[in-house]
């Protein structure tokens, strides 16, 4: 093998890596540092509306902000709703943007979390048998320590970020209610097909709700930060068709969330298994987006209306 050629490939990859990571972090740090895009046209009104931010991963992005805002407008609710869902978001990732969120002064933050995110890798338990039967897991396991920091830096969908950055350059900042994931209609896949195709291997991770878990630590920091800044928090478990953990783990998770809810005084809703009987799924993790799947958005609106009332008291 010719080392000059390999060096060239290496140079091309390195340059790609540098430009890619700068452009991706550019999106977080330089693009729209004040989240200008979130300042809707309303900010020019004489009576600006209070903001509600929905946070979470792609599991909450199917909540249709247009529907919520139209409903608010019709019923004289003086709030504006933004869906800030971002690909593969988890508390650990979200903590990087919490200062941005706070500086944008939302009145309410409603946060959808997923029990699956609170699992940690089971280390040192990969047996010879496992290696022989699933060489792939061995590979994943060996490279996990090396890959994880890299993977943390790579956003869920580089494409969406790049497009937003390009749009920002071309058209300047624009107000949008779904700033991080492109919001477009997706169709429903029959549930039985989804269940049939689902064969992910969960064995290598287990639920960890101790304070040692980075995700739990981050979640607590987020809760505290919001509280400190007088932002109301609503927590809910994001709906999924198939959960990655056992039923007993889910019960334990619910219990833990209820403890937090008492301790830090915020409402918590459990939606994780609410829609498993319905034909509204695009895949095993995501509710499809179209007129037949509005129930998720409608429930979200109900929760918000109820809590707005409660907060007012």
């Amino acid at each position: 093998m010719n080392f000059k050629l390999l060096l060239s490939v290496f140079v091309a990859i390195t340059f790609t890596g540098i430009i890619f990571s700068t452009s991706m972090s550019f999106y977080i740090n330089s693009y729209d540092p004040d989240w200008y895009g979130l300042l809707s046209n309303n900010s020019l009104d004489s009576t600006p509306k209070e903001k509600i931010f929905l946070l979470g991963s792609s599991t909450v992005y199917s909540v249709n902000s247009t529907f919520v805002n139209n409903y608010f407008a019709k019923n004289d609710v003086n709030y504006e709703f933004f869906n800030l869902a971002d690909m593969s978001d988890s508390p650990k990732k979200r903590i990087h943007s919490i200062s941005n969120i706070i500086s944008n002064n939302p009145a309410i933050v409603i946060y959808g979390i997923d029990v699956g995110d609170f699992r940690t890798e089971i280390k040192n338990e990969i047996s010879l048998e496992e290696i022989i039967i699933h060489p792939k897991n061995f590979f994943l396991y060996q490279f996990e320590d090396f890959m994880e920091p890299i993977r943390d830096k790579i956003p869920g969908s580089p494409k969406d970020r790049s497009l937003l950055t390009i749009k920002y350059f071309l058209f300047g900042p624009q107000p949008h209610h779904h700033p991080f994931i492109n919001f477009y209609e997706t169709s429903v896949t029959p549930t039985h097909e989804l269940k049939l195709n689902f064969n992910d291997n969960f064995e290598s991770k287990k639920l960890d709700l101790s304070d040692e878990n980075e995700e739990i630590k981050s979640l607590k920091v987020i809760i505290n930060e919001l509280k400190k800044n007088n932002i109301k928090l609503i927590l809910f478990t994001a709906p999924k068709l198939i959960q990655e953990v056992s039923d007993s783990d889910i019960q334990f998770f619910e219990k833990t969330l209820l403890t937090y809810s008492n301790e830090y005084n915020f409402p918590v809703y459990f939606l994780h298994d609410k829609y498993v009987e319905l034909e509204i799924w695009r895949d095993s993790q995501h509710v499809a987006i179209n007129n037949d799947t509005q129930i998720y958005t409608e429930n979200m609106t109900e929760i918000l209306l109820k809590e707005i009332k409660n907060f007012a008291i």
């Binding site: 000059k4 091309a12 690909m87």
Partner: peptide
């Protein structure tokens, strides 16, 4: 030539990375 070749590879790689669907 090798430097042109490297640049073209770089264009391929970068387009793939930036428009990677996730």
């Amino acid at each position: 030539k090798i430097h042109y070749w490297t640049s073209i590879l770089f264009i391929f790689f970068l387009s793939i990375a930036i428009f990677y669907v996730g």
